[in-house]
Design a protein around this nucleic acid. Structure first.
Length: 572
RNA sequence: UGGCCCGUGGUGUAAUUGGCAACACGCCUGACUCUGGAUCAGGAGAGUCCAGGUUCGAUCCCUGGCGGGCCAACCA
């Protein structure tokens, strides 16, 4: 039972409002068709999940279709393993494209033919300038460009050259196909944009069939047109490309109503980065263990960290869609994750920093198996597991304070505390290492009447702490993950020559080698999620946990009002 | 310096053909509690970037500033 998240439905965002208008006006015969066009040259990250949920969500809401299309128009850096990983991630996210999995490279022949048509129509020409010349002739944002000397080359000559480009007669960079638009156009993307370049490179799907490859501005709109997309949704930085999007469609003669591009703000989240290029750098420079490092904002990383697809969906719903550049607070992601996991994760007891407690009045060798509920009452789910109670237990070192201050409700000399699912105990004696002075053991008495009951005399016990039986506890490694960067915007305000990597959070991973967890955790398969009470949500690591070894990844901490009290106390 | 886009509490979104700014996260209080969790109740916090204009009335329309973003890869 998760809380209903559809009540108090928010009004449609500007894109949904547009789609709704189009659906009602019958602009596309009532049809809605969207797509997600990843380039298979990297892993999907949470920013992509936003784009996916916009396009996929809209298709679903309006009874439309959704295509997954790989935009594999540049063989450099693209490969099948990236495509496979993207497919896996999208399936995991819960996206269903049915049988509409497409590859832009399957349209190469059609794209090529349109290229010839453009030449024949005098709308494109083969330019034999060097790369540097082309750059120079393009001008700048403030100065107009100049025409290439090849711009008025006869149609037949361009056509011949274009065919020979395809045939492989030229080296990389010898010629390019360009649209003939306007070298003085205020929009730089309209200054005779490149349509095709020569690239003698093996394509992971097309092999060596092609040595010329279409550029994004030429290919993308046509891919959309071929697939009869109605609403081509992309991020804000493509706004300037919309003009060329429409120009190409006009030039090849795609008639309206036809696909139209609409841009929305891409996702930015505090304390992380979304740039694919920089994510690659983190992997390659060894700052993280891989694309699926639980600190990475990648879908694979989030998955390994223990985040659910449902939480990602909720998060995306929560943040909305607009055309204003924005940066989402990290706490919103955490909220979405907790709001999902709270209702689905069984509770367990785990002690991360063990301190020995001896229950002096409890018989040696006795074991009580307590039926502990898997969920608190308000979650409303059934189920219990058996937790052994014995004379010697481990508690969290931070749950004891020799000189407590007023608001500390846990264990202290002479104070009482509730052991979760077990007895109320009182700390009678603090045993210290004679040399270091470190507290090594607590000797406590228990109130035998308090198992599953409040103290008979009505006295109040304010705190409840978690514990595990020393005899039965299972050792485990616990990986405490935190935000990857220590500043909200790692890419902002960098000094000359400084790298965003300098903002990496040195404490983004703290490994607890020797945690003690309740024995019921030993038998679950890797990839099982829990709430470790009073700590947070954890998932056993799918790779490293198993076969006798237990490894848990912290997905997210619990909301921690204690931490605030403590921080305030230290601060003032 | 050219073109285009954007500017609503700390953050993200609302405000349906102009009608004295709403919701969520966060923050603060309190209640409840065998998780300092969850839940519940309450509160603080913007007068909508600024200045003009149109209007009985402007977050919304107009003009001019200011601030931010994008664009000068044979990347997408």
């Amino acid at each position: 039972m998760t809380r209903d998240d559809n009540d108090g439905k928010r009004p449609p965002d500007f894109i949904r409002a547009m789609v709704e208008r189009d659906a009602e006006s019958g602009k596309y015969g009532g049809r809605v068709a969207t797509r997600f066009p990843p380039e298979p040259n990297g892993y999907l990250h949470i920013g992509h999940s936003k784009a996916i949920w916009i396009s996929y969500g809209i298709a679903q809401e309006f009874g439309g279709t959704f295509n997954l299309r790989f935009d594999d128009t540049n063989p450099t850096g693209e490969n099948q393993s990236y495509a496979d990983a993207i497919i896996e991630d999208m399936r995991w996210l819960g996206v269903d494209w049915e049988d509409r999995l497409y590859y832009a490279s399957d349209y190469f022949e059609q794209l090529y033919e349109w290229g010839e048509k453009l030449i024949r129509d005098g709308k494109a020409y083969v330019d034999s300038s060097t790369e540097a010349e082309i750059r120079e002739y393009r001008g700048t944002v403030t100065e107009p460009g100049r025409n290439s000397p090849y711009r008025d080359r006869p149609v037949d000559e361009s056509l011949d050259l274009f065919r020979r480009m395809r045939a492989g007669e030229f080296e990389d960079g010898a010629h390019v196909l360009r649209a003939k638009i306007d070298m003085a156009h205020p929009n730089m993307t309209m200054r005779d944009p490149l349509l095709y370049r020569i690239r003698h490179q093996h394509h992971f799907r097309q092999g060596d069939d092609w040595c010329i490859y279409p550029m994004y501005d030429y290919a993308h709109c046509l891919e959309d047109a071929i697939e009869d997309i109605t609403h081509s949704l992309c991020s804000l930085e493509f706004k300037v490309n919309r003009e060329i999007y429409d120009w190409i469609l006009d030039a090849v003669g795609i008639e309206r109503p036809r696909t139209e591009q609409t841009e929305f703000a891409r996702l930015n989240i505090d304390y992380t980065i979304m740039s694919k290029r920089k994510l690659i750098q983190l992997v390659e420079d060894g700052h993280v263990s891989g694309w699926d490092d639980p600190r990475m904002p990648t879908v694979a990383g989030l998955r390994r960290r223990g985040v659910t697809p449902e939480a990602i969906r909720k998060f995306n719903e929560m943040i909305g869609v607009s055309d204003v550049d924005s940066r989402i607070e990290y706490s919103r992601l955490e909220y979405a994750i907790r709001d999902d996991l709270n209702w689905t994760s069984p509770r367990r007891l785990a002690v991360l920093d063990p301190l020995k407690v001896v229950i002096t009045g409890y018989p040696e060798g006795e074991v009580e198996w307590v039926d502990a509920p898997e969920y608190p009452r308000d979650v409303g789910k059934e189920g219990t597991r058996r937790v052994p109670f014995t004379r010697e237990i481990w508690i969290e070192r931070s749950d004891f304070m020799e000189e407590p201050f007023r608001k500390f409700y846990r264990l202290a000399p002479g104070r009482e505390v509730r052991l979760r699912h077990a007895y109320v105990i009182r700390c009678d004696e603090v045993v210290k290492d004679p040399e270091s002075g470190e507290v090594v053991e607590l000797r406590c008495s228990h109130d035998p009447e308090t198992m599953g009951a409040n103290p008979a005399d009505g006295r109040k016990v304010r705190g409840t702490i978690h514990w595990v039986s020393a005899e039965h506890a299972v050792p485990a490694e616990v990986r405490l993950y935190d935000r990857l960067f220590s500043v909200p915007d790692p890419e902002a305000d960098l000094e000359e020559g400084a790298s965003f990597a300098m903002n990496l959070n040195p404490d983004s991973l703290v490994v607890v080698e020797d945690a003690r967890v309740e024995p019921s955790l030993a038998d679950d398969p890797p990839g099982t999620r829990y709430q470790f009470e009073r700590h947070g949500y954890f998932m056993s690591d799918p790779e490293d946990s198993g076969s006798g070894r237990l490894v848990f990844n912290r997905t997210v901490t619990l909301r921690d009002s204690w931490a605030k009290i403590e921080a305030k106390r230290k601060g003032s």
